[in-house]
Simulated assay, not measured.
Amino acid sequence: MKYLINKYPIFIFGIAALFLTGCNILKPKIDRTLSPPENGRTVKITVDVPNIAELSPMKVMYRSNLCRKTYNNNEVPTYTVSGFNSEMVLLEKEGHSSLYSAEIPYRGGGKCDWQLSNITLRMTLKINDHFSKDITGVVGTGVIIIFDNNQPQRVGKKTINKKDDFYIIADYFPWIDIPFKNDKNISLWLYGEELYLYYKSRDAQQITWKPIIHPNIVVYSEYPAERKTEGVSTIYSYPDGTKSSNRDGKPDYKKLLSLIK
């Protein structure tokens, strides 16, 4: 269900609760009500979703310096951090196209004066006969875009700074993984250069993620033993017939890129 407040959509909250063992959270309870100002600054997030994939709801995180959290335990002195407030946003399909989008206010408003901190986009492959009938789980990939100086909840590698509006275009491949020999738990990954790509923007008004998925370039992996064994590495099989073994825990992304025609 979606509600409209000052012409901007406010969505059902999936409040992110970050609890530390032995910590006491600041009281009174933080007011997480959002009230974006009318005609305020916004950013439009658009994702081009291939038919072979599914887009998860977008996680939007707001932070507040007015409403802070206080932590206190026996090991470190009392300290505070900016309050946090997250929501899950369903991107809406644009007509008959493959585009899904949502417009997000930079200023969430409310008593805490919530400010946009970061968003997380995630996509997975659909399980169908194109890959395997025996797949038991899917692992997605995504994009995290940061709008302030706070760290996102998922911390990764280098962040790419962007000015103005920008596109994110990246190649992805299906990866079917059997963790151990004769294991019935088979995972289907949407595999890219990194599990999540990180970007930072201060002024973008439109950001588009266009994942390019290559469904016919499938890499398979299997650990050739029924349990972890010294000296044994996972074997990766590529569609050109080549095989390799390594202990990196992931396929050779550059190798997959070389197979694009």
Results as ranks from 00 to 15, higher is better:
Ile5His: 12
Ala16Trp: 13
Ile25Thr: 14
Lys27Met: 15
Thr33His: 06
Glu38Cys: 06
Asn39Leu: 10
Gly40Val: 08
Met58Phe: 04
Tyr62Lys: 11
Asn65Cys: 02
Arg68His: 03
Lys69Tyr: 15
Thr70Gln: 15
Tyr71Glu: 04
Asn74Ile: 14
Val81Asp: 06
Asn85Thr: 06
Ser86His: 06
Glu87Ala: 09
Leu91Arg: 00
Lys93Trp: 04
Glu94Met: 11
Gly95His: 04
His96Val: 04
Ser98Arg: 12
Ser98Asp: 15
Ser101Arg: 00
Glu103Thr: 15
Pro105Met: 07
Cys112Arg: 04
Asp113Gly: 04
Asp113Glu: 15
Trp114Asn: 05
Gln115Trp: 07
Leu116His: 08
Asn118Phe: 09
Ile119Trp: 02
Thr124Gln: 03
Thr124Met: 02
Ser132Lys: 12
Lys133Ile: 03
Ile135Ala: 03
Val138Ser: 03
Val138Glu: 06
Arg154Ala: 03
Lys163Trp: 09
Tyr167Asp: 10
Ile168Tyr: 01
Ile169Glu: 14
Trp175Leu: 08
Trp175Val: 01
Ile176Cys: 01
Ile176Glu: 01
Lys184Ser: 13
Asn185Gln: 13
Ser187Val: 03
Leu188Arg: 05
Leu190Val: 05
Glu193Arg: 02
Glu193His: 07
Arg202Phe: 14
Arg202Thr: 13
Arg202Trp: 14
Ala204Asn: 07
Gln205Cys: 04
Trp209Pro: 00
Lys210Ile: 15
Pro211Met: 08
Pro211His: 10
Ile212Tyr: 13
Asn216Ser: 13
Ile217Ser: 14
Val218Arg: 10
Val219Gln: 10
Glu222Val: 12
Ser233Cys: 03
Tyr238Lys: 09
Lys250Asn: 06
Asp252Asn: 15
Tyr253Arg: 05
Lys255Tyr: 11
Leu257Asp: 06
Lys261Pro: 07
